[in-house]
Design a binder for these strands. Structure first.
Lengths: 341, 341
DNA sequence: TTGTACGCGTTATCAC
DNA sequence: GTGATAACGCGTACAA
């Protein structure tokens, strides 16, 4: 397959390369007739401009990128849509860039910015720790969407306060009369969002004068996918087999909560009559499960909208609140019940 | 932020650009000491090579790309992992490229190949119709993973036969004694996978001598997201309100089936005692729902492995079966029951 | 082992 | 309105 270039198109048309370039890029200074002619031969010979060469020459590009780790996380689905629409609505090109687990998102961002001359960047799904210094090197505005670390107000961020919201959930469960609340947690060495929600759990217990019981905490095994139903199932099964007493399971994600419910069902237990189960995130799933899952609903769409708005404000150098913490909402589902006194 | 280039690095090091280049690319012909020195200043000045310039110069690149439409579809989650691991295992770079709805995947592929000098391409999630001719223009091997159209054996494809598998499901439901099987379908003008599964439904009815009843088919409203729980919920609600008689609901995806179950529960019905519900795909969800959903499980991982293997075989010009149809498996869940005679 | 010079395909700045 | 031509940043013959 011959790779045809702009030069050959020019030759075929009997014009100069710049004319072809003008035709491609809708440049005003070109005769309509020659433009048509050029476009025609372009179509005829299936000429496709080389983006690398373009980007090399261009110095600005009206492109924003969303960098996302864990692209398959259903939590991000709506958010991506919001970004995409906002970008195209502003006549911006939109690049969705997947960041592999072992990659550093900021490194990817720095590279991509050079390559594509980005105007702005969204980090979806937070940032690994110690990205801080590197972040300084990004020559374009960026926003972190959903924090995964302790809050750092010096960095443009749109998020919920995971510690607080997790604490809110446990508060609620305690207010329902639960005292022995099992936790389905992330891996023990997790330093990300799982840690924050764990911290919220501990904080709420302390606040309510309930002793922390290590035996009630199930850690995800290293290497296992954390936010899966299977993981919730396995941990719950182990919890049941451990003989620990508890009246309630709080899973740090909805999918884990679903797995927990299933494990309880399979053990012949009822939810919420025998055990209450709560989750976190407010996925579509939690609403449609039977029973519906009591959860913390993060305002995903609003957060996504705020994120992209903030990014554009920064790009356009408008004043804007650079650090925005959203309130989540506790959804009382059918999976938890109030304990009789 | 000054954009530092390879020339300046060379100047800073007091060497030529080629030496810097050699250092970066682990070229053998370079003195270890100078290499270290170069790398050191590179780090010091945070030099990052410009990928556009690189790609422009390179003519091969050991990169494969996966183009995917509907990146948030949970169906693809495991498959992406398989691709990623296989690629890195073969020392290939891996690019996951999201294709927007209104974009043509083949156009994106052609561009991307030029830009990144791809070695091979996977189209995940099928291809829109009439991609055929354009496909010829791709100068590198490609594989279509999961077909969305009628089967075309001349194109490298790894898929299940959606018509057949859908038919298999309906066959099974009929064998359970169901005669009035409602269908939750895609939009009426859908020409993709929804159409295939619909065709399977009709074929099975015919084969079993059951008259097709348009009233039993619920079409997704135009513009609505098809494969969502919400959609399944809404359609089921309408079905119930329509007064149509039926004993079973067959949804063309698991998420729709879950929505259907929930709608039935909310209407005070039981599953499967009052209505049987079946889905398609075999998502994790179908297993963990209560009751578990009877579904057609596509062997996703196997298909992904076959896809990537086929792609590499083609790249390496090994002989390989270019058209592979996998058998799916009918999973009997708790959501369907055998009707008493 | 190292440096120079050229070309990759495109866009932009000039003259014309 | 159009056509040369110089960049853009990098890799790589080729020469040294």
């Amino acid at each position: 397959m011959e790779q045809i270039t702009i030069k050959e198109v020019a030759k075929l048309c009997g014009v100069g390369v710049s004319t072809v370039s003008r035709a491609i890029n809708n440049h005003p200074d070109i005769n309509e007739a020659t433009k048509q002619m050029v476009m025609e031969t372009i179509r005829k010979y299936n000429y496709v401009p080389n983006n690398s060469a373009r980007n090399l020459k261009r110095s600005d590009s009206n492109t924003i990128a969303v960098l996302i780790q864990g692209i398959t996380n259903p939590f991000f689905a709506d958010m991506i849509q919001v970004f995409e629409r906002a970008a195209t609505g502003k006549k911006y090109s939109f690049v969705l860039q997947h960041v592999e687990e072992r990659e550093n998102a900021v490194d990817v961002a720095i590279q991509l910015e050079k390559e594509k001359r980005l105007k702005g960047i969204v980090f979806l799904g937070g940032l690994n720790s110690r990205a801080g210094e590197k972040l300084q090197r990004l020559p374009v505005p960026f926003v972190i969407s959903t924090a995964t670390e302790e809050l750092d107000e010096s960095v443009p961020t749109v998020t919920v306060d995971d510690v607080k919201e997790s604490s809110r959930m446990v508060d609620y469960l305690v207010s329902c009369g639960h005292k022995k609340i099992a936790l389905l947690a992330a891996a023990k060495d997790d330093a990300s969002i799982g840690k924050l929600r764990y911290n919220g759990y501990r904080r709420a217990l302390q606040k309510n004068g309930i002793a922390y019981d290590e035996g009630l905490v199930q850690w995800t095994q290293a290497g296992q996918p954390i936010y899966s139903m299977k993981n919730g199932y396995r941990m719950t099964k182990e919890l049941l087999e451990s003989g620990q007493e508890f009246t309630c399971i709080y899973a740090i994600s909805d999918s884990m909560a679903v797995g927990a419910c299933k494990a309880l069902f399979d053990a012949g237990k009822r939810v919420p009559e025998d055990y209450s189960v709560a989750g976190f995130d407010g996925l579509e799933l939690s609403e449609y499960y039977e029973p519906s899952i009591t959860t913390i609903r993060q305002p995903r769409r609003e957060m996504a909208e705020a994120t992209i708005r903030l990014l554009f404000d920064m790009i356009e150098e408008k004043a804007a609140k650079k650090y925005q913490v959203f309130e989540a909402e506790l959804i009382e589902g059918g999976s938890t019940r109030r304990l009789e006194a």
